[in-house]
Design a protein around this nucleic acid. Sequence first.
DNA 1: ACAACTTGGCTTTTT
DNA 2: GCCAAGTTGT
Length: 716
Amino acid sequence: MLSLDALNRPQREAVTHPAGPLLVLAGAGSGKTRVLTWRIARLLAGGEDPGSILAITFTNRAAREMKERVRALVGSKVSEGMWISTFHSACVRLLRQELGRVGRSPGFTIFDADDQHTLMRRCLQRAQLAERQYAPALVLSMVSQAKSRLEGPAEFAARPGGYQHQRIYELYRLYQEGLRENHALDFDDLILETVLLMREHTDIRRHYQGRFRHVLVDEYQDTNFAQYELVKLWAAQHRSVFAVGDDDQSIYRFRGAEVRNLLSFEADYPDAKVIKLEENYRSTQNILDAAHYVVSQNLYRREKRLWTQRPAGEPVLVLAVEDPGQEAELVARGVEERVAAGVALSQCAVLYRTHAQSRPFEEACVRRGLPYSIVGGVGFYARKEIRDLLAYLRLLVNPYDYLSLRRAAQVPRRGLGEASLTRLEEHGRRNGLTVLEVLARAEDVEGLGPRQVRAAGALGELLSPLATPALTTSVRCLVQSTLDGSGLRDEITGEATDLAEAQGRLENLEEFLSACEEYERSGDGRGLAGFLEGMALMTDGDRWDDKQDRVVMMSLHSAKGLEFDTVFLVGLEEGLFPHARSLDDNQELEEERRLCYVGMTRAKNRLYLSWARERALFGRRAAGIPSRFLAGLPCGPAQPLFPPERASVHRPAPGPGPEVTVPWRVGERVRHPRFGGGTIVAVQGAGETAQVAVAFPGNGIKQLLVQYAGLERKEG
DNA sequence: ACAACTTGGCTTTTT
DNA sequence: GCCAAGTTGT
């Protein structure tokens, strides 16, 4: 039996808790993955059937890590047959397994954000609504919210609402119709359809409820209503839900996550046990203090405080810089410093609020020859050449994917335009034909000229030899022949105006090919369909190879669940972080603050926060105001980053008129509302936006932003 | 049908 | 500052 000495008391209690509902409130870095893996390992070591275990994570990366760690504890033989996956993967698996049995096609395609967008635009056209008034993104987000509440079009229509609501309903209905016609499901459908399937079919429900004797859910605070219902449904018979989460790390409200699911766990399961993990094994006390200071400003949270046995460590540092260029330069220098101190490059991370901020950091790394990887942003498979190729491949897997036909038929150009494609599509849909059938018999399509019929036939002939052996040939070969047959390569080299760019795009295709190879080596054995499905369900973070020794740059959202020796949390300015879109809603503001907390708690040993006095926004330059998250933050003294002559900055006076400078001076006596009287020991900037380090007798040195600190000058 | 050009619109975060 | 959609001309 596994020895439990490696666990602390509450961890051990969670791991050994008898079957039954259990909520583990696990603070950042408190060893929640450890608890989950040990729990599973203990169950297996105790003779539990691996097939009775269902563990849900939010990313494939987390699932993979958990599998590996369980295997390391009990060996791969014992752990064979468990379900450890994301909600979405588990649902796909279940749907593929069961849909056939209830007379529905298990061969659906998963539509990603891009496909959803394209489809919604077509719905708008069909409904004769102007895109101006009904932005596809907005309608899609309403549809997504509806689905995450388990509302189909009918339920959505039943909600009270005016004219606008009625139009959205129509779009929702059209959109669902479009998905069905293309034999496709979107991300939200995966969950929704699984819930419906389980609810409607007693035999299926019974089967899974009987099977899943242990349901474990990671990041429980990030579940939406549909996922929450699904967990209840899965676990209904054995009622052994092992939920792990942290309300302070709830950062997905915008996509329907409800912390309420976590906070009301005890109401759902009155016999639930709740265990808190508050000992942190990751960060220094200084980092924890700073992070706690930020998140504790939130009104809506369960009070908890992380502690560590580790020493205080270096103080958290706030860097005030001129502009993003300097910010990047400084970060790059900081990375070099850490590397010189023996820290691995891959243990240094740059975290930002929006992907748009990554560019200067990338440039700074190139200038200094620092290897880096960017996680997310314009994702690999969002690139044009990849999506073009994917259109062909998806057509081979799903012969009803008319959306992909459109794309494949237009890149490269082959004499079929918008009008002809619409005719082909309408015809195919009306008669329930596959794409290939329509293309082969294009002469049956009304309103098509002889030229177009010939073009359609040619496309069909190009596709059909590929389509035949789709499931048997090796994925790599298939992709290779698609690439050759489609003329996509020539398309890139032919239209190239920028040679380097064309080169890059060809390289991307090569990378795609090697991804195919890698997939085949993984031995999944599900051919092209399996490969495409994996791609659809993969996040950018999942694609990131953390074995490579490179500085990593990513959004704060992608950073959740990761840890680094050194973290540079950049762009801490009002309007950027917290983001402008969240400023008028307190709930969203609190989410931003939690996001800040998540970012800060990624750091093990060093944490740097930076803000820029000036930042280009919308191509216009704007003055940067330090983020409210910095106000009063317990951190080290101001950093002497600039030559002295630049340490004082002019601030425009309100309205026209001369600029005023109100310098604070080292040695000046000030008063702080909370810390009392003190003396300035360092200054950066001037006037309202200045940062000062003040020594308070008995309170130590605090770095303060004048603007928020409520600092008053004392005479004399 | 398609390519070159112009306009305008706007940006969170992601399974 | 960028990209994507719309408009024009061949």
